[in-house]
Simulated scan of single mutants.
Amino acid sequence: MKSKIPVILIFSRLIIGLVIIYLSLIKTENYQIIAVILLSIGLLTDIFDGIIARYLDISTQKLRRLDSTVDQLFFVSVGVATYIQCPVFFETNVYKIGILAGSEVLIYLVSFLKFRKEVATHSIGAKIWTLLLFGTLIQVILECQSLILFNLCFWVGLLTRAEIIAILLLLKKWTHDVPSVFHSIQLRKGKTIKKSKLFNS
């Protein structure tokens, strides 16, 4: 049963995303507070699924790929729900949001063209950006606006997307959990990289 905990956490994040969309559609009372709580729970499942999997020594390639895919679906779901509630914010920032979305699509395109697999680098930069995205979404959910935090999220997002593309281009074979460009260079040279049991498998 313990071995199933990471998988349960991963799929619970998918369910949470769908619930947030549903609540936004029906315009439930106290939506903002409920959405923030669910978003926070979703982030915690994202943090602990990997930690628990590594602790149980079951952090497989398949599990990491699943985790990466569900992460994308979760944040897209929250984004859709937030758009339903705050369309003006998205209309005001449509170009920046479009650029970010395009950069994310480009990452997957590069990974599929080179390796025929989805991306699952789980880089340190990407983890930092996830926290910024989390904070930005909370601000937008609560206030339907974000200026400084959103702009920081935008530029850090572009930088981390660029780093992931560089990692993919440097890797000779598909590898999950590559902390940074430096580590991808080490792997390219055939060296073994040191990973944190807390942050990488």
Rank of each mutant, 00 (worst) to 15 (best):
V178D: 01
F115N: 05
D177Q: 09
V119W: 06
L149I: 10
S146T: 04
L149R: 01
L131G: 07
F115T: 11
F115E: 03
V110Y: 08
R116C: 07
I167A: 10
D177P: 04
L168A: 13
A120V: 05
T121C: 10
S184N: 04
S184D: 06
L152H: 00
H176D: 03
K114C: 06
I141L: 08
L171K: 02
V178T: 03
L137F: 14
I148N: 00
S111K: 03
K172M: 03
T121A: 08
L147I: 13
F182R: 14
G135A: 12
K172V: 03
Q139T: 05
L109T: 11
T136N: 12
L137T: 03
N151T: 12
W129H: 03
A126S: 11
I107R: 08
L171Y: 01
Y108H: 15
V181P: 06
Q145Y: 09
Y108E: 15
E104H: 08
F182W: 13
L113Q: 14
I141R: 03
F115M: 05
I107P: 05
V105T: 14
I167C: 08
G135Q: 05
K172A: 05
S103K: 02
I141G: 06
L152D: 05
A126M: 04
I124G: 05
W174A: 15
K173G: 07
R161V: 10
C144H: 08
G102C: 07
V105I: 15
F150H: 01
I124Y: 11
L142Y: 07
I167R: 07
E163Y: 10
S146I: 07
L170D: 05
G102A: 15
I138H: 02
I128S: 10
K173F: 10
A162F: 01
P179V: 09
V119D: 12
Y108L: 15
L168V: 02
Q139Y: 01
L171G: 05
V178Y: 01
C153Q: 08
R161E: 09
W174Q: 12
W174L: 04
S111T: 10
L170F: 13
W174C: 09
G125K: 03
L131R: 00
L169A: 06
H122K: 12
L147F: 08
L113M: 15
L169N: 06
K117E: 11
L168K: 00
F112G: 03
D177G: 07
S111W: 04
P179F: 04
T160G: 10
Q145W: 04
V181G: 09
F182P: 02
F150G: 02
E163A: 13
A162H: 00
I164D: 13
L147G: 05
L131Y: 05
T160W: 12
N151Y: 14
L100E: 07
V140G: 03
T175M: 12
V140H: 08
V105A: 15
L131P: 00
L133I: 15
T130V: 11
L113G: 14
L137P: 02
T121V: 14
C153N: 12
L158G: 03
T121M: 04
L158F: 02
E143A: 11
K173S: 15
S111F: 07
E118F: 12
